[in-house]
Each structure stands twice: as C-alpha cells, then as structure tokens.
Design a protein around this nucleic acid. Structure first.
Lengths: 234, 234
DNA sequence: GCTCCTCTCGATACAGTGTATTGATTTATA
DNA sequence: TATAAATCAATACACTGTATCGAGAGGAGC
C-alpha cells in the first residue's frame, strides 16, 4: 500500500502522544460519569476511552470485556451505599433498603445492573458484612431467618428501585411528569373504557389515590417488615 | 453506476417475489419466537423481518419504532397470564403473583420488559380488570388499600422474577448451575475471607441455608401478604 | 552505544444494530 | 388507459463490541 507513494507525498507518521495514565479506577470513574450523565446506553468502550484520551483497544488491558467494566461499576456504587445501622432489626432492614435506594437514585444505572448473580467485589462484600453484623447486633441471629429476610428484601428493593428509576427516566425522556403523562393517555383510556370492557379499571382510575413511587417504596417496605415480624412471632 | 455496464452484462432485476402477508400479530409472534429462543438481544428488526421473509424496512409500516414492537410483545405476554382467582384476598394476591411469574418463566424476556411506566395494551388492561374484580369479590373493596397492595405486590414480583430469570440465564450462559457456580467462586471467596475483613460473611457462607429462587419468591410473597394482613387489622 | 525482544498501543476490520432517505414498482383511482 | 398513491427494497449513516495485526517504545544483553 504505502509503497505506492513516494516519500515526498507520504505523510509523516502521526505523532504518538505520551499516553495518558490509566487505571481501572480512572476507567470506572469515567464510565460512571458517562452513565450518570447520559444513561447506561451511553457507556461504550469508545466513549469511555475517548473521555480518557485513549484509544478504545487500550481498555482491554484493564478489563477483558465490557461486562467486566459494568461489574466494576456496580462495586463502585456499592462503595457509596451508606453503612446500615439501627437499634432494632427492622430499623436495620429499613436502612439497608433506603441506603441502596439512595444510591440508585443518584446513579440510575445502578438499578439496571442489580439483580443477576450476586456480585462479589470487595465493596459489595463489605456491604454484606456490614448488613449482617448490624442485623446480628440487634439480636436477630437465626441465620435462616436472616437469610430469608435479606433475600426477600433484596429482591423487593431491586424491583421497587427499578420501577422508580424507570419512571424518572421516562419523565425526562418525554418531558412529561406522571400527571401530565396520565393526562396525555387519558383520551385513549376513555375510548377503551367506552367499550364497557373495563368497568373496574374505569372506577379505579377515577377514584383511586395516585401513589408516588417513593410512597409505594415505603409502603411495600412496611408490608415486608411487618410480614417478617409476624413470621418471627410464629 | 449502472450505466457503466451495458445491457449485455447488466443482470436482470431481481424478481420481486410476491410479498409475504404481514400483520402486527405475525410480527409480534415472530419476535416472541426469537426472544424465547435466543433472548431479547436476538430480537432485531432485521432478524424479525428475515423470519417473516420480508425486508427490514417493511416492518415500519406496522410499527413506528422497535420500542413499539417490544410494547406489543409485553401485551401479548400479558394475554398469557392466567386470570387471577381465589376465594380470599390473599389467595387472589398470590394468584396474581404466581400468574405473572409463570409467564415470565415461559418468556424470560418478559421480566426484562416489565417495570417502566404501566403498559396500557388491551390484554394488560384486561389483566388489571380481572385482578381488581377478583380482589373486590373477596370483600376487599377499600380502593386505597387495594391500590397500595397491588402496587407493592407488582414491584415485588418484578424484582423477584427478574432475579430468578437472571439466575437461569446465567446458568445457561455459563453452563454452571448455582451450586457449581458457588464452587467455582469458592477459591476467590476463601482468599477474600482470609484477609479477615469479612468474618460475618464467612460464617454466613458456611452455615446459612442456600435458598433457591423459587423459595425466595414464596417467602417474600408470604411476608408481603402477612404484612398487608397486619395493616388491615390496624 | 547498539541490537534484539517483549510489551503495549493504535489502526483497521468485521459483523452487527436502529432507522432516514431514496427511487423503483406495484396497486388503486379517475 | 393514464395518472396518482401506496408500498417496498436498497442504500446509507453513525454507532456498537471486540479480533487481529503492524508499528513503536522500553528494557536487556553485549
């Protein structure tokens, strides 16, 4: 290829700039910044690399696949979860739930990445450790109960936070908040209701209270905690 | 371009085959088949179109964006949810939860698509209608309570099903079931535990019972139902 | 100081994505 | 039958994750 051009016409090789210093931590932080700003879909290896003034392929020395980068992001987020605390087991459970929720609201992509097999990064392990010891210090020390309660809580929090985050994203994407969106879909709903096929839904839409996502979160959390309490009595 | 070739060398135009008949229903079914077989990521407009013996662009007459296709898939899945039934309100709630779970286990992509703003397709509305009337027929007719209970249940089911599906997918992708995966990660965990930073986790991993996803589902469901029951008493 | 080797990096390439545009062909209408 | 409208296929664009490979930089041995 290049021998088709004489030296006179051939351009100089591109000056190789001194490569910017890299580390997993810098890479993860850049990825998180991207995800915070423009959502998880905006995290591409090319964009992360560009933010660090590097070529995309350079990242593969620090990470084998994009999935591993996401895993690192999850652990970094867990590091931000406030340590659970509380004098009673129910206070600790609530604090675990609200702690994770607070991080998910700050880093909305966190909610999307939770829920697969348990993550095992150091910060995640530390969070588990803190949860267990906080729970145990309240006197709840039956491992079976603790395991079940934590698993159920975990699953609940994932669902609730996902829902809440999805609502906020939809709100930003469409520019319509929940009330405006309901207004926008009202004409369609009225036409559906006019068929007479959904009388209960019609009444429900008219008369039921409109719960905000955070109210649902609190409510379900209370249900869970009280359910656990009644199972402890049994 | 083509005028660079004389008629003698230029190939005949491709015979335009009679286009295969299309409909939203056929498109959605093809998309669902793809998603069932190879996961949601395998659903691309090109592949769906190819499965229907059509060009990709043809689908845009039936659907404005890929997102709308996914919306149609969700409604088609809701149509498969068995109608909730039960003599008592808690039986109805349980039947709603297990009904959705059963569909999500049959169509694993369903779990991934739930959780945004409420879907409003006819089958989804019908499912809501059936849920409300079944609940009401048990005598639970305070709209506020019903709304809260359903919202919390909904959120819980989304999280639980997502977790369960993610585990099954990881299992198939890695070829390791949960026990084998735990074995595979054990050496790493032991090294982490050797640092002495996670004594509670270490004990927990050794002694705690290993819950399966379906056990967690049932357990959390019971917690929720009992929590709702105790809130009814108050 | 010079040569060789290894490590690391950038460029390129590939197969894929959703969808906008365009131009041709079929169908419906007058 | 001539024209208008509907419909479709092809092309194009800007992306994606990552495999491959050639070139350059840094260090080792002489």
């Amino acid at each position: 290829m290049t021998d088709s051009q004489l030296i006179w016409e051939r351009p100089e090789p591109t000056e190789r700039r001194r490569p910017s210093p890299l580390s997993r931590e810098r890479i993860v932080r850049a990825a998180i910044d991207l995800a915070d700003a423009d959502g998880l879909d905006a995290v591409s290896l090319r964009k992360v690399a560009a933010a660090l003034d590097a070529g995309p392929m350079r990242l593969y020395r620090y990470v084998d696949t994009k999935d591993e980068l996401l895993t690192l992001m999850v652990d970094a987020a867990y590091a931000e979860v406030p340590a659970p605390a509380g004098a009673t087991w129910d206070a600790v459970l609530r604090s675990i739930a609200t702690g994770i929720r607070s991080v998910a609201l700050r880093h909305e992509w966190f909610a999307e990445l939770l829920g697969g097999r348990p993550h095992l990064g150091p910060a995640t392990l530390a969070h588990g450790e803190a949860s267990l010891t906080a729970l145990r210090s309240t006197g709840l020390d039956d491992l079976g109960t603790v395991t079940g309660a934590l698993a159920a809580l975990n699953v609940y929090v994932i669902g609730a936070v996902r829902k809440e985050v999805a609502e906020r994203r939809a709100q930003r994407a469409s520019g319509l908040d929940q009330r405006q969106w309901q207004h926008a879909t009202a004409p369609y709903l009225l036409r559906m209701f006019a068929t007479g096929a959904y009388p209960a839904m019609e009444e429900w839409v008219h008369d039921a209270p409109h719960l905000q996502a955070d109210e649902v979160f609190e409510l379900g959390l209370t249900y869970l905690v009280e359910g656990i309490r009644s199972s402890l009595r049994a």
